[in-house]
């Protein structure tokens, strides 16, 4: 059974709250399985040490242009936003989901009907704001199909 098929045992607030309290990294596979939209798209998270890769498993419901065919721009955007959020949750471990303030998405190539991978890098982890850069690719990592730059808000520490 893969992580994506796992039944969410705990609510998001508990997964994140427990991790922040104990200072341990949140279980991203459990977290992603607890997000209905991520389950709908078919996103899973793979972690190798501190390297996190998100995977968008291809499904027909992700198509936005049936002629090419190509993934919907909103799907690619939603996948990149989720990739960025996973990275922020992992590194900031603030006990809650970060809130997106703004995102900029560049579409570089059309997304073909195959699996898509995502990685994100935090360019600045501030006290309240996190700057993130994320990219999505398919077969070749150095030929990204889209990139995202975004700002995410963390709660004020008490």
């Amino acid at each position: 059974m893969s992580a994506g098929d796992r039944l969410p045992a705990r609510p998001l607030s508990q997964i994140l709250g427990d991790a922040a309290r104990t200072g341990s990294r949140p279980d991203l596979a459990e977290l992603i399985a607890a997000i209905p939209y991520a389950r709908y798209l078919g996103i899973v998270v793979e972690r190798k040490g501190t390297e996190i890769t998100t995977v968008l498993r291809f499904g027909q419901h992700l198509i936005g242009n049936p002629v090419l065919p190509a993934l919907h721009g909103g799907v690619v955007g939603g996948f990149l936003e989720t990739t960025a959020i996973m990275q922020v949750v992992f590194e900031a471990n603030a006990g809650v989901m970060p809130k997106p303030v703004d995102i900029n998405i560049d579409y570089l190539r059309s997304g073909r009907p195959v699996d898509t991978y995502g990685r994100a890098v935090i360019t600045k982890l501030g006290r309240r704001v996190v700057n993130v850069h994320a990219e999505a690719w398919q077969e070749e990592h150095d030929r990204p199909i889209a990139t995202l730059r975004g700002h995410f808000l963390l709660p004020i520490g008490d």
């Binding site: 997000i35 939209y37 991520a38 389950r39 939603g78 936003e81």
Partner: peptide, 19 residues
């Protein structure tokens, strides 16, 4: 509900708005 970003709040995920 199946498009929400958090089942506790039920708020739709940003990806739905992007689409």
């Amino acid at each position: 509900a199946h498009l929400s970003g958090d089942p506790e709040t039920g708020v739709l995920h940003g990806g739905v708005i992007t689409s």
